[in-house]
């Protein structure tokens, strides 16, 4: 049951890519950004925190990212959002007292307070995203047609999206509340904003993705309409020979195979490949069942993902219409 009515990812303004570490969400961020740029969009791809993997994925040299970001490909700007830098920027804008803000950020007590305080990193990061989304060129056109954000992997991606709502309900009045409300509205804008979960066809990611999608529906009001399943293995044997390992297992033990390991070793290796492949398929089905969402299946690239060509392969797969059930 292909969902023909599902709008393309390119029709969104803001796509927040989420998933646990190791699912390849940074790769998905880069691939989607590149695919959009190839179709004429001006794209911002952003990652949060200390790591700067995006430029490397595009084969660009990593420079220290400034507030302007770094062009990594025609039409693609990469940016690393550092919470403290974003905070300095925000406070500078709010207070207009550059000297005070600089002293503040050098103050050890302030760092202690901030290190101990929950939530502000998420809020300031999303605030920065909001700011980027609002940016315009001198001709009044939006600076970016599409923003793809690689959400931090710590905890559930939901904590990240939940903070504005918590702030709005915990803080009674003031600019902080006002700004959090703006960010909250941006997240809940179902026309413009999409949460894009990235999973692997494995047990834990399958379960966590179902929980993530359920939580997103209950708590944040963010739109989520498909799940990306990354690194899905291809069938290990050609069509018609799906039971190849069992055929090998039936060979007599004394079969003479020059230049090859024994028949039982051949059978064991191929059995392992088939079993893991079958498990992979089961988890694909489980993700579809657990989330009730159609899947976008990305192939496992045996050579790994490096350079623009691999991103193009994944980008093309990302823009395909998602399928309700794995084949």
């Amino acid at each position: 049951m292909a969902e023909a009515s599902l709008p393309s990812l390119l029709e969104r303004r803001l796509v927040i890519v989420t998933g646990k570490g190791g699912t390849g969400k940074t790769t998905v961020t880069a691939a989607l950004g590149l695919a959009a740029a190839r179709r004429g969009r001006r794209v911002l791809v952003a990652e949060v925190g200390r790591q700067a993997q995006l430029p490397t994925l595009f084969g660009a040299a990593t420079t220290t990212p400034g507030p302007e970001g770094q062009p990594v490909h025609p039409g693609v700007t990469a940016m690393r959002i550092d919470p403290y830098a974003a905070l300095a920027e925000y406070l500078g804008l709010q207070l207009g007292l550059r000297g005070l803000v600089e002293r503040l950020l050098r103050n050890p007590a302030f760092h202690q307070l901030m290190d101990a305080s929950p939530g502000w990193r998420e809020l300031i990061t999303l605030g920065k995203v909001w700011h980027l989304e609002q940016m315009q060129d001198p001709d009044g056109r939006s600076r970016f047609d599409l923003l793809v954000i690689d959400a931090p992997a710590t905890g559930h991606g939901l904590t990240f999206l939940d903070v504005p709502r918590v702030v709005v309900s915990a803080v009674r009045a003031g600019p902080l509340r006002r700004h959090a409300a703006l960010v909250e509205a941006m997240i809940a804008d179902a026309e413009q904003t999409l949460l894009l979960p990235v999973a692997l066809a494995e047990e834990l990611p399958a379960r966590e993705t179902a929980e993530l999608v359920a939580g997103a529906r209950e708590r944040t009001g963010i739109a989520v309409d498909r799940v990306v399943v990354n690194a899905v293995a291809r069938p290990p044997f050609p069509p018609g020979l799906e039971d190849l390992d069992q055929r090998l297992a039936r060979l007599p033990g004394e079969t003479l195979l020059p230049g090859l390991p024994s028949a039982s070793v051949l059978a064991a290796c191929t059995a392992h490949l088939r079993q893991r492949f079958a498990l992979n398929r089961e988890y694909l089905a489980e993700i579809a069942r657990g989330t009730g969402l159609p899947l976008v299946v990305l192939p496992l690239l045996p050579a790994g993902v490096e350079g623009v060509r691999a991103l193009d392969v994944l980008g093309a797969a990302l823009l395909e219409a998602p399928v309700g059930e794995p084949r």
């Binding site: 103050n107 007590a109 803080v171």
Partner: peptide, 23 residues
Amino acid sequence: FQRGARQVLRVIERVSGLAFLED
């Protein structure tokens, strides 16, 4: 108290509003 800590409070108050600080 050191000036630094006072400034921190001033900033938090201006950004967050006094009610937050009271809580």
